[in-house]
Structures are given as C-alpha cells and as structure tokens.
Nucleic acid binder design. Structure first.
Lengths: 196, 196
DNA sequence: TATCCCATGTAACGAGTTACATGATTCT
DNA sequence: AGAATCATGTAACTCGTTACATGGGATA
C-alpha cells in the first residue's frame, strides 16, 4: 500500500512538530533545517517536499487555501486534527532501548516538541524512561569494558570512554531536566535576583 | 558507472578498519556490529554482505583462498594493498565542519581505528582539527542562543542546552585525548602509584 | 530590462532495512 | 534424529541525496 500504512519517518514527525507552531510552506521548513542547530536532517528540498506530500496523503496536513492577494508564490500547509493526534501519539510513545542506544537524536527531537504539543505529564515520564534505559545501557558498557577494554587499541579505548562519559552526562541531564520542569516556569534573565 | 567511481560509504570504510585487524567473514563482521557498542550501524546481513561485495569490486578486499579442511562454511576476505591505502586516506582525511556538526559518529569511528592503521602524527592532527571546528560550532550555538533562546519552548531549550554542553564535553575530551596520546603508552591499572 | 534570489518541484540513483530463503554443522 | 544456530545470500521497498529544471517576483 502507498504511504499511510507504513510507519512515518522521524523526518515526517519532525515536520508535524514544526507545523504544530503554525502553518508553514515547504520552503519555510527547509529554512528551519538550514538555519537552526536543530538541523538534525538535511535542508534539501528533495527530502522535505516529498515528506510534506506524504503527510498530505496521510491526511495529517492539508494545504492552506491560497491567499488571493499577490506576492510570492507560496504553498502553505497546516496540521489537521488527525495530524495533531499523530504528533501526540509520537510524543507520548514509550522510548525503547534501541532508540536510546542507536537514535538518541530522534528522542531529543521528540522531547523538544513536548512542552508545546503534549500534556504536562509526558515530559517527566519520558525523562524517567530514558533515564532508566540509559542506566541499563551504561551497565552494558561497563560489562563490555570489563572483559574487552584490555584488547582495545589506544584511540579505540578513548572513543569508548568518551561514549561512556556521554551517557553519564546525558543521565545527569535527565535528572536536571526533570527538576527544571518540576519547578514552576520562570522567565530567564537576572530578573529574579532581588536586593543584591 | 558501477561502484568504484563513487565515494565509499562510512560503512565500507568501517569494514576496512575492521578487516585491518585480520581477515574476517561477513558473518564475523555482522557479529561485531551486533555484540559491541561500536554498533554504529546495523548488524543486518542485508547491509554488510553487499558492502563487502562492493569492497571486492573496488579491489580493496579479496577473498581468502578457502581452507581445504572441513568445518563450517566460511568466506573470508582480507585487505589488499589498495584497501590499506584507501583506509589510510580515510583516516588521514581532514575532518570538515559538516562532519563535526552532522556526523560525529563517523569521526569517532575514524579515530578509533587510527592508532592501529595510521602513522602516529595522524591522531593528534585529527584532534586538533576537530577541536578547532567544535569551537567554531560552539560559537555558532552561542550566537544562536543569543537571539533565539527567548522564543524556545522549555523542553526545546533544555535540548539545546544539552547539545551545547555535549559540544563542550567533547571539546574537553579532545584536549584530554591529545594529552593521553602524547604521554608514552602506559598499561592501565593502578600500577604507577608509588609510595603515595 | 537584466539579474538575482525566492520557491517549488522532479528524476536518477544508491544505500540501508526488513524479510525471506537456503543449507550445512554442531548440540542435545 | 531433531533442534538450534552458524553462515551466506537475495528481493522488494523506501527514503534521502544530488543535481537539475522552472519560473515568478524583487532589485539594480
């Protein structure tokens, strides 16, 4: 069957997340990938335009009626109710071990969209699961190190150790992020500091 | 033109690196991806076997003459001189900004193989370049934060900050790794500590 | 008017994923 | 003998990459 049965790709869900903030054109979406550090994916129109079309065949987005006024040619799309539901489902999906070990980037994407497009209990649950899975992964790495660290060449060992450290840092980040979300949101800047 | 003109993929170079440690069969290579944390890529035979074939058409590997003795059916390949040269070229290649920002995983792979398959001046040069590019990237991130951090939703900001921290950690790792390589290799363990 | 950039697409191509097929060998 | 696993491969499919094509609006 043409697209619709198959699982959507991370790129498609990411586009949903971006479109959740308002209607956008294919070009807009390309620009976002090209000009922000969230450029997890390519800015190539050859990837983005077809992905938007797939979202249309899924009925997750629909073209915005073309404004009658002149100006540059634009073709904007917006989320449908089904699209919003698909986004919610993606955001609330339980992270798997495979994602934690092989596709952390997609998880960061998901998390980044959560505070806008998911109920407030989703991000903490997400962080708890990721934290648990990262601890498992860390244990696996320790086990591996115990009986293979000896045979690793120097640079190989350095890479391995950095990987392990990165997992530890991410684990700490999970805890910190959970605390930050628990606190009532506070606007940034030094406004809070009062009387010295 | 069939494979040979085109740039080899990271998977192909990674296989070269693994084969540099001795002849291996396709199955062996699959097992390595499946059982070690260097499983940057999939353990799927559908990826590995065709990649090995491509390496053969490039004349970078060649099949090992089949041992006449019984035992399990195996088809091992080993590096050719051209393969070793291609591996060296890959390892000595100057890292690009795009690799640093979008494909750090491939760079880790390269570095991991360096102490075995490249002259000793290559790893430090690599670390220096990566360090420089990471600093550039960090500056880009700071610039981005300066004028966009305000609009980011809470979880988006947390992801961004974690990304920035990761870059800082990797930067520190580059410095530490360079120092570690500069020191004469020392076997691990607490053997060095003397009389407190 | 000429030129550059905005904006949307398409076509060819290759790699990786998933799933399946097939035997031979070792283990129980 | 039967089961599990070793070991090699192939076929279908889809996505992303690269490169190209087009053409209207802005800018000089």
């Amino acid at each position: 069957m043409p697209p619709g049965t198959r699982q959507a790709t991370t790129l498609e869900y990411t586009l949903l997340g971006l479109l959740d903030q308002g209607p956008q054109s294919g070009y807009d979406l390309c620009r976002i990938f090209a000009t922000t550090p969230f450029a997890l994916y390519s800015d190539s129109p050859g990837a983005v335009y077809p992905a938007v079309r797939r979202l249309e065949t899924r009925r997750w987005v629909e073209p915005l009626p073309r404004g009658p006024v002149g100006g540059r040619r634009r073709r904007e799309v917006r989320l449908t109710a089904a699209g919003r539901a698909a986004l919610s489902e993606w955001l609330a999906r339980e992270p798997t071990k495979h994602e934690v070990t092989h596709d952390m980037g997609a998880l960061y994407m998901r998390f980044a969209f959560m505070s806008q497009a998911a109920p407030p209990d989703v991000p903490p649950r997400f962080l708890a699961t990721v934290g648990r899975l990262l601890e498992e992964h860390l244990a696996d790495l320790e086990r591996f190190a115990a009986d293979a660290s000896g045979q690793m060449p120097p640079t190989g060992r350095l890479v391995f150790e950095h990987g392990r450290e990165s997992v530890r840092h991410t684990l700490e980040w999970c805890a910190r992020a959970a605390r930050a979300l628990a606190k009532p949101a506070r606007s940034h800047g030094s406004r809070v500091r009062r009387s010295s």
